[in-house]
């Protein structure tokens, strides 16, 4: 056993303390980030967090995934038992009580529909099904013109959902061509709910990324969460980065996510409500905002309207559009937030 004649002297502490201070300084940038991933809502969802222990984080992420799964079950148009399908089955021409998450989500969807002048339309269900974009594999050719026209004449793309409160919130589909389809807003809503679940579990610094739709909480160590915006035609390239503030969301809609090629053209899943066909004014649209729900819906609306839609967003929702010729357009508030990287696409 080692026996010491004296405890460490003051000199030794003088030698050691600066070294310890230096080491602590060097460690400042090393952030411990926890990650959990799961397949939810038809996409890979990744939750990253800092400033929390591994075990509490796992528990919080588990709660967030559970919340997202329950939303998927309620909002999927593919399961006959979902609240959404049940409403569509009964809601044509008569008032039906909205159930579960529909009570919160449908009014918010209608609010964006009105504000975007129907560029975001939450009841294109029959058109989306006709085009076959609900689930891969996607069809190799567009549906017959006659079928598209038939649905448009049956009011598929007109504002068609009325709401009233008779004790509970009730909805009514007013045109036979319309059925509720919340594909353009549900993922954002699920991201918001996941963020709420993380907060409830004491996670204050996190990033929820649901297949590119994301929302940040707090910071990643000393720095904000930084998001890259992908190049619309080069999958692994990033055209710009944005630093997300606490609670802020970023959602991008692009014509490269669900599409097929036919007749030398790209047919994608983002339908223009006015034509019932894939929107042709943009390759990609991104929207920043205080909530992923509205950012999701507005990114769909902006994609449909193209650069002309930027004005409708207002200063609270910075937007970026890459038009069909590959040119970037951004609202003034977005321009101030972007750190442009692409050499191929010029900064807006």
């Amino acid at each position: 056993m080692i026996r010491f004649s004296a405890p460490p002297s003051e000199k030794a502490y003088r030698l050691v303390l600066p070294i310890v201070a230096l080491a602590l300084g060097a460690c400042q940038d090393q952030v411990e980030v926890h990650n959990e991933r799961a397949f939810v809502m038809g996409t890979l969802v990744e939750i990253s967090a800092t400033g929390v222990g591994a075990e509490p984080f796992r528990e919080a992420a588990g709660a967030a995934f559970l919340e997202m799964r329950s939303l998927h079950d309620a909002l999927t148009p593919l399961d006959g038992e979902s609240e959404l399908v049940r409403f569509n089955a009964r809601g044509h021409g008569r008032w039906v009580a909205l159930e579960g998450p529909l009570t919160e989500l449908v009014p918010r969807a209608l609010s964006v529909q009105r504000a975007s002048d129907n560029a975001f339309n939450p009841h294109l269900g029959r058109l989306v099904a006709l085009w076959g974009f609900r689930e891969p594999p996607f069809p190799g050719r567009p549906p017959p013109e006659k079928a598209i026209r038939g649905l448009l004449e049956a009011g598929a793309s007109q504002p068609a959902l009325a709401l009233r409160r008779e004790g509970s919130l009730e909805g009514r589909l007013e045109h036979p061509g319309a059925t509720l389809d919340l594909g353009g807003i549900a993922k954002g809503f699920a991201v918001d709910r996941a963020v709420a679940a993380l907060r409830e579990h004491g996670v204050d610094n996190a990033l929820v990324n649901a297949g590119g739709d994301m929302r940040a909480l707090g910071r990643r160590g000393e720095r904000p969460w930084r998001i890259g915006i992908r190049h619309p035609r080069r999958e692994h390239h990033v055209i710009a980065t944005v630093e997300l503030r606490n609670g802020e969301a970023m959602v991008t809609s692009g014509d490269y996510e669900r599409f097929f090629r036919a007749e030398g053209k790209r047919f994608h899943h983002l339908l223009d409500p006015t034509t019932g066909r894939p929107a042709r004014r943009a390759q990609q649209a991104s929207v920043l905002g205080p909530r992923a729900t509205e950012s999701d819906a507005w990114s769909t609306a902006l994609f449909s309207k193209g650069s002309q839609g930027l004005e409708a967003l207002g200063p609270g929702l910075p937007g970026l559009v890459i038009d069909t010729s590959g040119k970037a357009h951004a609202s003034p508030t977005m321009r101030r937030r972007l750190h442009w990287r692409s050499e191929e696409i010029l900064a807006p």
């Binding site: 080692i2 010491f4 004649s5 004296a6 405890p7 460490p8 002297s9 000199k11 030794a12 030698l15 050691v16 070294i19 310890v20 230096l22 080491a23 060097a26 460690c27 090393q30």
Partner: peptide, 24 residues
Amino acid sequence: ATTPADRLVLIAVWGGMILLGIQA
């Protein structure tokens, strides 16, 4: 200038620094 305890502390700190440096 140092006691054996001082030297032990110095060795521990410098060893830790080297490991941190390699990692960084």
